[in-house]
Design a protein around this nucleic acid. Structure first.
Lengths: 221, 221
DNA sequence: TAACTTTATTAGCTCCGTCTAAATATATAT
DNA sequence: ATATATATTTAGACGGAGCTAATAAAGTTA
């Protein structure tokens, strides 16, 4: 499956998928250029190439959407990424916050066989250590997101953390340090006009900038 | 360390190292081209590039030798390769004969941190599942080869297998099937003039072509 | 040693993924 | 509605790693 796309193409497909899953619609040149830290012309030329290979539907000046095949490749890479993250935490003693870079590389290089063995060793998990859903082996499904963002809540809400989106390692380490990891509870103390959220949990009271609060997926209880 | 060389360069360095370790001297263009399945001009241009980067000493028409730095990179990659092979067998249930391809890819993509964790998980082994020595973490040493080749022995010799060099997966599977794996014993029944070696072990009597017999490292007992 | 064979190098091309600078489309604001 | 600002694409270049065809050096043999 993913052998039909180069490592670089796989990366573009994965990032297109992630952006669309988060905001829907299509992905623009500049959006992707920023996310992948390449120049806009590089993205344009990749859009053309992916379009020719029918991995993407590309309309000039209107961005791309994934084709069925493109989505399958994206899901396969994402499955690898998240399984690897889980494996590194469960079996090699990595910390939750430091698995991302390693997985970002290895996701392109493990075989089908290794994917299977890793999944088995983990008991075919449905979520990775950040709480992100792992696509199923047949790439047919991925758990639907039924969470809200911490940044959308109001004073008094008590929530349980379901997922923390991938961010800089230092930010994740900080969150881990204050107990804001999947499975833990927190109560929203207040929300400042500019979006700063203050919460209290078993570790005390902490304030989080809006952007961070929007990266924390929760369920109200 | 190895970040100073591209994946492709790492591969050349590793293969140069392996050839020199086996036969000494220097490595010729055609030798390496054959081993790596690329054309001779491709090898020549890589020799030039590695020479410029001082990873190799290249003399026109006389092949290459590794520099200190080139050897260190080769050893690092080899350490990765063999640790990964060992890990796949010990922790992910791979068979001895099927780990090579996976390791050949992953050797270039694991981080220092992962190398360390894998080595620890394995108890810092000195040999991989084929019996090949694993370079030490500081790349200063690699176990000296004190074995002979099965193909060098004569009728009546009883040997214990120390190592089976990497070959085609099917060949390794065959050898595993007849009990010719590191740790097992065998007696040399006869050696035909064209080098065919016939041995008897706990699985019965088997004949091996010379080339295979030369890939099996043993110690006489 | 001269002729021939084998091995290695040079020349020049290709594809991939990236870039910058210039041109053009689209979106926004006066 | 026009001018300006922003986003996107086109044009053209580059480095990496590979290839084939042509040339040249080294090695071998008569």
């Amino acid at each position: 499956m993913r052998e039909e796309a180069s490592e670089s193409m796989q990366d573009y497909l994965k990032n297109i998928y992630l952006i669309i899953r988060e905001k829907g619609g299509s992905v623009s040149t500049s959006e992707l250029a920023k996310k992948m830290r390449v120049s806009p012309p590089t993205v344009t030329s990749m859009f053309v190439k992916l379009g020719e290979r029918k991995l993407v539907k590309y309309e000039k000046y209107k961005g791309v959407k994934l084709s069925k095949k493109g989505e399958a490749i994206a899901l396969e890479v994402l499955r690898h990424h998240r399984l690897i993250e889980a494996y590194l935490v469960e079996h090699l003693g990595y910390d939750w916050s430091e698995v991302h870079e390693e997985a970002d590389v290895l996701e392109h290089h493990i075989s089908e066989k290794m994917e299977l063995r890793i999944a088995n060793a983990l008991g075919n998990p449905k979520f990775d250590p950040h709480g992100a859903p792992i696509p199923s082996a047949d790439l047919s499904s991925i758990a639907k997101d039924e969470t809200t963002r911490l940044g959308e809540h109001i004073s008094g809400d008590i929530v349980v953390i379901e997922r923390v989106r991938e961010r800089e390692k230092e930010e994740l380490q900080y969150l881990a340090g204050i107990g804001m990891v999947p499975g833990k509870q927190a109560e929203v103390e207040s929300v400042a006009p500019f979006g700063m959220v203050t919460i209290t949990n078993e570790n005390g009271t902490h304030s989080l900038p809006k952007e961070i609060a929007m990266s924390i997926h929760v369920k109200k209880i």
